[in-house]
Amino acid sequence: MINLKPHRKNRLMLIFAMILGVSVAAWFGLKAFNENLMFFFSPSDVVEGKAPQDHLFRLGGMVVKGSVERPGDGMTVYFVLTDMAKEVKVKYTGILPDLFREGQGIVANGKLEQADLFVAQEVLAKHDENYMPPEVAGSLKTAELKGAKQ
């Protein structure tokens, strides 16, 4: 370890103390606003009644495979969102983003109309952190299917 002269050591200590202080303050601040920093509620939050009942909020989850229905004019879509624990049905009228598909993570902004129907005004797609060429994705899928069959 390098020998520090006392006045330099003091300055270094002061700097560490300052960073520590700011970190603690930031931690308290973020802790207090934790709820507001959550970008969306999960279907479990909605089922458990943690989500707001009377105003707009965002609901995030995965579109359940085979749940997308387009009754009537084709602009209105019904689908079910899941967080692998609970499910919530969503209704949306409008244009969906390119990445919207079954099995895709999405975030919908809207309101609970009934206890079990979420009416969305806006639907955003959430893509995951995986990047691969289509061939690899295809072979992964076939491997998965083979695994499921056996």
Partner: peptide, 23 residues
């Protein structure tokens, strides 16, 4: 730490990067 629209880290994590080697 929070639910975000932005996805999680692809490369800067302890696991193997979740991006194909050619990319």
């Amino acid at each position: 730490w929070w639910n975000t629209l932005h996805q999680g880290p692809t490369v800067t994590k302890f696991d193997k990067p979740s991006i194909h080697i050619d990319m």
